[in-house]
Design a binder for these strands. Sequence first.
DNA 1: AAGATATGCAACCATTTGTTTGCTAATATA
DNA 2: TATATTAGCAAACAAATGGTTGCATATCTT
Lengths: 106, 106
Amino acid sequence: MRRDVFQAIADPTRRAIIGLIALQAMTPNAIAEHFDTSRQAVSKHLQILTECQLVKQEQQGREIYYQLEVAKMKEIDKWLEQFRKIWEDRFSELDTVLSNLKTNKP
Amino acid sequence: MRRDVFQAIADPTRRAIIGLIALQAMTPNAIAEHFDTSRQAVSKHLQILTECQLVKQEQQGREIYYQLEVAKMKEIDKWLEQFRKIWEDRFSELDTVLSNLKTNKP
DNA sequence: AAGATATGCAACCATTTGTTTGCTAATATA
DNA sequence: TATATTAGCAAACAAATGGTTGCATATCTT
């Protein structure tokens, strides 16, 4: 079963969960209360996030606190890196050059 | 139908296509030759990429050249921004502080 | 004009996804 | 100890996804 970081952040609910627990660890119940989904649904999302190591658990009594493994988010950043080179600095100039060429053509 | 940038980059083939046409516009056929999928499959991916404006077309005779709309990739970068604040600089220190507190507790 | 090529579109199908429901295990509280 | 709470797990299911096949359209080449 395909399960990587990109697949993990594809779901909007999952992105919301990520944003939620980024700064503060939370239990599945607490997370579920922030959305209009069931605890089980959140639990499954957490399971997926765990599988691709975007989240780490910490048992505390009968409660399990989930916290974001922020470092893993770097993988996305790393992939984005190659395009950042394009859109930053030189690209905007190149783009205007190209569109100038285009508009001056007819 | 849910269709955003995050959903678009979830598929590995789609990410490969994005990487392929990032620097040079290509036709569906040319793209398909780089993978072991059919032209129609690639075409569907391009359709999805077009829907979320990650890709722009340019007809040239009977050929259609697809090029990456690099600017759109910034959306991902923008979302990542909030976490970058966490993982950069201060976080690593905060993390060690927290785990120190934890291990010294019992 | 006729055939080849490039592409899009629609229908169909197997697989995956997200969710709910029901159950069990473990921990806390009375 | 008995009951309530927290949470994982499995089964079931509708919806979405990725792919294939077949066909229509437009453009190029001869």
